[in-house]
Amino acid sequence: MALSYKARRRWSLLILLVGLPVYIVAAVTLVGLLERPSILIELLIYVGLGVLWALPFKFVFKGIGQANPERPDQS
C-alpha cells in the first residue's frame, strides 16, 4: 500500500527531526570506537554513513518538495 502525500510529508518530518539526530549520534559513536582514524578515512566513513541512512527512506522523500498531486489545481 502506497503512502499518501500527506503521510509521506509527516513521515519525512519525523525522520528528519528525530531519526537523523539519533543516526548522527550513532555514527559519531561508531567512529569514536575506531580510536580516531586518519582524517581522510573518517571523512569517507561519514560520507558513506550519510548516504547509507537515506537509502531506505528514498520512497518517503521522493516528491515531497513538489506541490500536492492529490489536491486539485487552485487557480
Score class of each variant (00 low, 15 high):
72 P>L: 07
20 L>P: 08
62 K>A: 15
68 N>F: 10
46 Y>P: 05
20 L>A: 07
6 K>R: 12
56 P>E: 03
61 F>L: 14
29 T>R: 08
67 A>Q: 10
74 Q>V: 13
74 Q>W: 12
28 V>R: 09
49 L>P: 03
15 I>D: 01
24 I>C: 05
44 L>K: 07
48 G>N: 04
32 G>I: 08
58 K>Q: 14
54 A>C: 14
37 P>D: 12
53 W>P: 06
65 G>Y: 07
73 D>S: 09
23 Y>D: 04
68 N>W: 01
30 L>Q: 12
45 I>L: 15
71 R>A: 05
45 I>G: 04
15 I>L: 11
3 L>N: 09
57 F>V: 11
8 R>I: 02
15 I>C: 00
22 V>T: 11
44 L>E: 08
24 I>K: 03
25 V>Q: 10
66 Q>F: 14
64 I>C: 02
72 P>K: 03
7 A>N: 06
73 D>Q: 13
63 G>R: 03
31 V>P: 03
42 E>T: 07
47 V>K: 01
41 I>N: 09
55 L>Q: 07
3 L>P: 02
59 F>I: 15
41 I>M: 13
66 Q>S: 14
3 L>M: 09
49 L>W: 01
35 E>K: 07
62 K>N: 13
75 S>H: 05
11 W>I: 13
48 G>S: 06
18 V>W: 10
28 V>A: 10
22 V>L: 08
52 L>A: 13
44 L>P: 03
71 R>V: 13
51 V>W: 15
4 S>L: 04
15 I>M: 07
35 E>N: 13
24 I>H: 07
7 A>Y: 10
34 L>D: 09
59 F>A: 12
43 L>E: 03
60 V>W: 01
6 K>H: 11
46 Y>V: 14
66 Q>A: 15
34 L>F: 04
64 I>F: 04
56 P>T: 12
62 K>D: 15
49 L>H: 00
52 L>W: 11
50 G>E: 00
9 R>Q: 12
73 D>I: 02
2 A>M: 06
32 G>L: 08
35 E>H: 03
30 L>I: 05
53 W>H: 11
47 V>E: 07
57 F>R: 03
13 L>T: 04
1 M>H: 07
53 W>I: 11
19 G>H: 00
75 S>G: 06
12 S>K: 00
46 Y>F: 15
46 Y>C: 05
5 Y>E: 04
59 F>E: 11
22 V>G: 00
